[in-house]
């Protein structure tokens, strides 16, 4: 709703062919806190973050509150989500040692799933992962985990193997080593966070621009007459993107979790 107002405020359906805000940041930043505790601003994004947490906890609670031999239909859903993360992601990627990382990966997957699906939830329509905070925090956490595990499992050899890879011809070793060093310790966390962030920003932008443009043009039919037909393709295109974004929201939560597992795996078994 607020995006609608933001975008249409700078939109003149009689002159433009699509509505876009003056500044894209306005679609993502809620600078007007509901209340503040010292420097902590309780904005809409903060509220939605806690809402996502409550939804995840409720999902787990209602799916698992009873130890039941024959689970309910909702219980089957929760159990299959847990089983998916545990068996396919944690144990499938990391191996038998993956069981230790299941709580982290499961919490991450469920939190990101709900946060991403906020993008297409009517009434919310805002993915909190399109703010940099959650992607950065989770990717840094993954970074810390895989670096600590790497040192813990392999000692100093962990870094040595990265900057001086034995499997590469000696002439190229230093070059591959530098690339690997940058890739492992800089690009991994960066791309992990930015991938999620960029997908959500792009999806939110597309949805907002297309659906708001469609709505603004078609609702101002009294002022601009036949020109309001411009809104129709925007609206139809927007609905198509809407369906696509449901898939993207789930897929990005999966890929973020999968890549975290892969990075942890590369520290547990560095030779691969």
């Amino acid at each position: 709703m607020e995006q609608l107002i933001l975008a249409s405020g700078a939109c003149d359906p009689a002159a433009d062919i699509i509505c876009k805000p003056e500044n894209v940041n306005e679609l993502f930043e809620f600078t007007h806190p509901l209340f503040s505790i010292g420097p902590f601003d309780f904005t809409r994004t903060v509220f939605l973050t806690f809402l996502a947490m409550v939804i995840v906890l409720a999902f787990l609670y209602f799916g698992l509150r009873k130890t039941r031999v024959v689970p309910s239909r909702f219980g089957v859903l929760v159990e299959s989500a847990v089983g998916f993360v545990r068996d396919d992601i944690a144990k499938g990627v990391i191996g038998p040692e993956g069981g230790r990382y299941v709580p982290y990966l499961l919490a991450m997957f469920l939190f990101l799933l709900v946060a991403n699906l906020f993008e297409v939830t009517p009434g919310i329509n805002f993915p909190i992962t399109s703010r940099m905070a959650i992607p950065v925090f989770l990717s840094l956490l993954t970074w810390v985990i895989f670096v600590v595990v790497g040192f813990f499992k392999n000692g100093f050899r962990y870094v040595l193997d990265i900057i001086w890879p034995k499997s590469v011809p000696i002439g190229l070793r230093w070059l591959v080593g530098i690339i690997e060093l940058v890739s492992t310790f800089l690009l991994r966390p960066l791309t992990l966070a930015v991938r999620l962030f960029a997908n959500m920003v792009a999806g939110h932008l597309m949805l907002t621009l297309l659906l708001v443009s469609g709505w603004v043009f078609m609702s101002s039919v009294g002022d601009i007459g036949a020109r309001s037909i411009i809104g129709l393709p925007w609206f139809v295109f927007g609905l198509g993107i809407y369906l696509f974004e449901i898939v993207v929201a789930v897929l990005q939560a999966y890929i973020f979790t999968l890549l975290s597992a892969v990075y942890i795996q590369s520290s547990v078994h560095p030779e691969h």
Binding site: P39, F40, T43, T45, R131, A133, V136, F137
Partner: peptide, 8 residues
């Protein structure tokens, strides 16, 4: 990242 959102 915004500090408040990061904390949340």
């Amino acid at each position: 990242p915004e500090t408040s959102e990061l904390i949340a």
